[in-house]
């Protein structure tokens, strides 16, 4: 477990990224005491809450290990131009950051994912365009669970090591002629907070078209659900194109597989 204090973290940041001027984030509509810290760590720089950033999540978590989240900045992109990155974070998770999604020129700023939540928490998505401003949407997920619920599946199956990185995928054209890509990989996504199980998670995924154009890049943290699954939306591609997926996990294991993209509309 990394134990970097905020002060030390600031120093690391100063080396890694252009330092943003320190400024107070705008007041949090959800009144979370964590907001200043979440903002500083995940959305460094100027922040505005913006209704053009769409964040979908249920009001209550049916399964705290699999909370569905969809982030969508297409409406925003239509007005401000290309989106550089989209960051999902949950204030009251022990590990706040869930994913950083960087859509390439051929991908829409749109992602479906699933996260784990430790308790009732604000969930946020910050979207950064060319102007560097973070445009943020937020909502609370109630993690009290539903009735008639089963407990979440046990973390890690008996034979999980033999299927680590095993991939499933499907791509098809939707009504708008865009390509929907669904990915699913086997990975336990251990957070390191369960007794005796060290942190171990998929940490990086890139999707590249065979034309060489980068489709998307994802930086993935442990709060992404076990057996991570993502839904992406790609702009129309040439018939018969392939998306090469490359992944890496926190132990340095590498994964690579290829997803054929559709030639014809599937609907």
């Amino acid at each position: 477990m990394l134990r970097i204090r905020p002060a030390a973290l600031g120093a690391v940041l100063a080396l890694c990224a252009a330092p943003a001027p320190a400024q107070e984030p705008p007041p949090d509509p959800l009144n979370s005491g964590m907001w200043p810290l979440v903002a500083e760590e995940n959305f460094p720089g100027e922040i505005v809450f913006d209704p053009r950033v769409k964040l979908s999540l249920p009001a209550a978590a049916e399964d705290q290990f699999h909370v569905p989240v969809t982030i969508d900045a297409r409406e925003l992109a239509a007005e401000i131009g290309p989106i550089a990155e989209m960051v999902v974070a949950a204030d009251l998770n022990p590990i706040i950051h869930a994913v950083t999604f960087r859509p390439g020129a051929k991908a829409e700023p749109f992602l479906g994912l699933r996260i784990k939540v430790e308790q009732t928490t604000p969930v946020r998505v910050g979207v950064r365009g060319a102007d560097g401003i973070w445009r943020v949407a937020a909502a609370v997920i109630d993690a009290a669970g539903g009735g008639c619920s089963a407990p979440a599946a046990a973390h890690g199956q008996k034979d999980w090591m033999s299927t680590l990185g095993e991939a499933r995928a499907l791509a098809g054209r939707d009504e708008a002629g865009e390509t929907r890509i669904s990915l699913r990989m086997r990975h336990p996504m251990d957070t390191g907070f369960a007794a005796g199980i060290p942190i171990f998670h998929l940490s990086e995924l890139t999707l590249t078209l065979d034309s060489g154009e980068e489709l998307a890049e994802l930086e993935i943290s442990a709060p992404i659900s076990e057996d991570p699954a993502f839904n992406l939306l790609a702009r129309p591609t040439a018939g018969g194109a392939t998306a090469a997926v490359a992944g890496r996990d926190s132990e340095g294991n590498r994964f690579a597989f290829s997803v054929p993209l559709p030639e014809e509309a599937v609907n």
Binding site: L2, N93, I95, S203, E219, S221
Partner: peptide
């Protein structure tokens, strides 16, 4: 380097 991943439990 991913700064976002570096949240320690202490910070939380």
């Amino acid at each position: 380097m991913n700064r976002m991943k570096r949240m320690s439990r202490r910070a939380w």
